[in-house]
Structure formats: structure tokens, C-alpha cells
Amino acid sequence: MESVAPASVDLQKLSVRQLNHFLHHEIGATSPSRVEILNPNGLHNIAVGLDAPVQVDVRGHAGYFLGGMNRQARIVVHGNVGWSVGENMMSGEVRVKGFASQCAGASAHGGLLFIEGSASSRCGISLKGGDIVVGGHVGHMSAFMAQAGHLVVCGDAGAGLGDSLYEAVIYVRGKIHSLGADAREEPMSECDYDKVGILLSRTGLDWSPREFKRVASAKTLYHWNVDADQEY
């Protein structure tokens, strides 16, 4: 894969629509399997909806929804991203060298999203099976209503972490500002250490899994409790 000269697309010359058309329809067995995107300049919807085992390098800062709905592709952003990077991704990998704005990896079903810097609020909101690793901190309400998958936070987590969690599991190395409703800290098992170790090794981070805490659902919201104080 690395030996193929990358096709280069300059977003000062082509529109995002033209770029995505190229990535959807002209990347096949005979086309270059590496594409380099120049001058992303914060534009939205770059490399959305890919479904090919291609490597995409984005040289600069991208806007909203980068790599959304990704299947198979490996997308690396050499810069920061705006809202909802890797939203609803299905497989493959999205790696952000800088920081990510809110809702990173929202509703991701599969694949790996790796933010080398920090991610802001609502990281991994409604996560549905994907894995997210954040090298820095995450903002408030991260993993809100996350249903399946893993969120690994190497820094600190903001307020309301894991509010209304379902079956997704969160691992945090730093401080947790506060836990959301029904989220609780639980002891790490050997399976947890293994899972964190595998995800860290895939991202090249060398923290010890032993430094992480596990946060999961207390499952008290799973069933209606008639005896609960119904004051809202």
C-alpha cells in the first residue's frame, strides 16, 4: 500500500463534492490506494462515506463530519477537526493528529477513532460499537447514552461522564470531573486491562493499562422503579 504514489487532491481547485465523488467512484483495484488531500482549510464533509481500503491523508485542519460513515478506509488528519469527526463510522480508522471539537465519534458502529490531542464535549455520544481513544482530555457529557463499544481517555474527563450509559465501557486514566446519571466506577478486570492494552497498542500510546479506571452503567435506569422519588 505504501509503495503506491498517492493521488493528490487540492481543495482549492476541486470542491468537496468532487473530492467525495472521486473517493466513492474512482477508487478501485486499479486506482491509487493512497490519496492526499491538500488545503482542507476547515471545510466540512471531507472524505465522508468512503467504502474502500484506501489510505487518505488530510494535510491541514478539517471542518465538520470528517470521515463520517467511514467503512474500511484509514484516514489521517494532520491537523484539527471540527464537530462530529467519524460520525456513524462502521469500520476502518480515523486518526486526528490535533484536537477534535464536539461529538467526536458520535454513533460510531465500528472501527477505531483516535484523537491524539483532546476532544471537546459529547465525545462518543450514542456510541454503538466503535472504539475511541483520546490522547488528551474529553469535555462534558462524553459517552452520553453510549450503547456499545469503548472510550479510552488518557487525560481527564469533563462533567457528566457516561450519563445514561448502556453497555459501552469507558476507561479514564486521569481525573473525572463528575459522573453522569447511572454511570459508576467499577473495578478493572483482566479483560479490561487486555482491552485497554490492545487499543493503546493500536494507537502507539505507551501508557500502562494499570493506570486506567473503568466506568460503566449501574443499570438502575434499565427498569422503571415505581418506588423512586418521581420529582424531576
Binding site: 476547515g42 471545510l43 491541514g60 485542519h61 471542518g63 484539527n80 471537546s120
Partner: peptide
């Protein structure tokens, strides 16, 4: 949004934060 700052001189080496 960042895209409205992309034309500014020296933006590639600017300190950026949210």
C-alpha cells in the same frame, strides 16, 4: 468556524484552540 480563518497570514502555525 475555522474555515473562515483559513486565509489569515500565518494561520498554519497559529496557536488554535476551542
Amino acid at each position: 468556524e475555522f474555515r473562515s480563518l483559513a486565509h489569515l497570514p500565518g494561520i498554519r502555525s497559529a496557536e488554535l484552540f476551542e
